[in-house]
Nucleic acid binder design. Structure first.
Length: 416
DNA sequence: TCTGGGGTCCTAGGACCC
DNA sequence: TCTGGGGTCCTAGGACCC
């Protein structure tokens, strides 16, 4: 039996833990670069703010309804997320961290599931300040569905029993089922399947023929047959991408190169933290797709490396060679990124018959990582990333809150 | 003027092998 | 007129998730 506990409007709730003036006030948190709304408080939803709505469309609401806007502060959200995981680990024997705001828990054998779910919510709220909802079901898909239903107000919904499932699925919109996206939702609706119950009861051979094994699995899960296990250990990443939209359009190729070097260093740090090495690397850079009247260009290239590496210097050098000569004059680049591919654990690497495997200078890289962990990101690094105070490509974060829980200088002070 | 970032899996088709 | 059977690997595209 699965329970899914999910933070309500998570990013907004995380901002509200420390910023009292945001409570009970319509609030949104933006994507990077302050582009669009990615989290909305109940009050903001009531004002009609849509998921992903561009920020510039929200100006009237900011002016007339006091809509509050915050830039995404992932250091804060990630830290609060870890705290919630630790709280839950103290309560359940098995747990899967599914996303920054969702955790699946094994609640098999618990007699009063609803009371236990209420206990989890209360404890998470008291210890972390984040309100949440709990959905319970015999499969992950049903637990997700129960969680969605719980958001309607009850806070906890238990779909362990078939009668409860039947009642809930009968009116549950197909578009809200986990694993059904906009495309499939439109096709299913066209076939007369509008609710979760109708998908559950559709002929399996039809679902298999039209949508493949993925949706067929979802159908089985809706029928109460578990097809997706609890994943207690996160599988190793296969690739790591670091990409950003720039704060403004950039025509200077040296500036794009600096941005790519910065992203490469970030990606390599993430990779080393996971104990992985890359056997391939790629980059891309696009002009501003939202300005079709401007000249457009998109550059990208990737290569396999002769030997896998986790050394930032080698990777920065590779990216620099890849991009050289691939950008066009007179193009304003708006977004770029770096991809580390074919990731593996170094102990699993295939050896090279003619050259010893060189995964890079471990001591140098671990010293670099240790310095940056102790004194803050960017304390020590590579010259190729540039040391300009404020590069043109830097993303906009006009309403960034302090890193209350992860930076000593940002710790809130209590005034007596 | 202003529009995010980071992932995974499945499938079909082509190239190639014996 | 007849023209096999069985397999792997890679890639691109399409779908999904948060």
């Amino acid at each position: 039996m699965f329970a899914l506990i999910d933070g309500n409007n998570f990013y907004v709730s995380a901002e509200r833990v420390f910023s009292v003036k945001l409570r009970n006030v319509p609030t949104v948190v933006c994507s990077n670069n302050d582009g669009c709304a990615v989290a909305r408080s109940q009050e903001a939803k009531a004002l009609g703010v849509r998921m992903g709505q561009p920020l510039h469309e929200l100006k009237p609401l900011i002016r007339d309804h006091g809509l509050q806007v915050r830039s995404a502060n992932f250091a804060l959200y990630g830290d609060i997320s870890h705290r919630i995981v630790e709280i839950l680990r103290g309560e359940v024997p098995r747990l899967e961290v599914y996303s920054i705001d969702e955790n699946f828990c094994d609640v098999t054998g618990i007699r009063d599931r609803e009371a236990f779910a209420r206990h989890l919510r209360d404890k998470v709220l008291r210890w972390s300040g984040i309100p949440s909802c709990v959905g319970i079901g015999p499969t992950k898909t049903l637990a997700k569905l129960a969680n969605k239903a719980a958001k309607a107000g009850a806070g906890v919904v238990d779909l362990a029993e078939p009668e409860a499932q039947a009642r809930c699925l009968a009116t549950f919109p197909i578009a809200d089922v986990w694993g059904v996206g906009p495309r499939w939702s439109a096709r299913l609706t066209g076939m007369g399947i509008h609710t979760a119950a109708q998908l559950r009861d559709a002929p399996t051979d039809l679902v298999l023929k039209e949508f493949g094994v993925v949706l067929t699995r979802t159908q089985r899960e809706l029928q109460g047959h578990p097809c997706v296990e609890l994943e207690e250990v996160e599988p190793d990443r296969k690739q790591i991408v670091v990409s950003r939209s720039f704060g403004e359009r950039v025509t200077d190729h040296a500036a794009v190169a600096q941005a790519l070097a910065t992203f490469t260093v970030r990606a390599a740090e993430k990779m080393r933290r996971r104990g992985l090495v890359a056997a391939g690397v790629g980059f891309f850079a696009h002009s501003d797709v939202f300005r079709p009247e401007l000249p457009q260009h998109s550059a990208s290239r990737s290569v396999s490396l002769p030997t896998a590496t986790a050394d930032s210097r080698l990777l920065v050098g590779m990216v620099d060679r890849l991009m050289r000569g691939r950008l066009k004059e007179g193009i304003g680049y708006k977004k770029a990124g770096v991809v580390l591919m074919d990731l593996a654990r170094p102990e699993h690497l295939q050896g090279d018959l003619f050259a010893p495997a060189i995964v890079g200078n471990d001591k140098l890289m671990s010293t670099l990582d240790a310095i940056n962990a102790k004194f803050g990101r960017g304390t020590a690094g590579l010259g190729a990333t540039g040391w300009a105070k404020k590069p043109a490509w830097q993303m906009r974060q006009r309403n960034l809150s302090p890193c209350y829980t992860t930076r000593l200088s940002d710790i809130p002070r209590a005034m007596c």
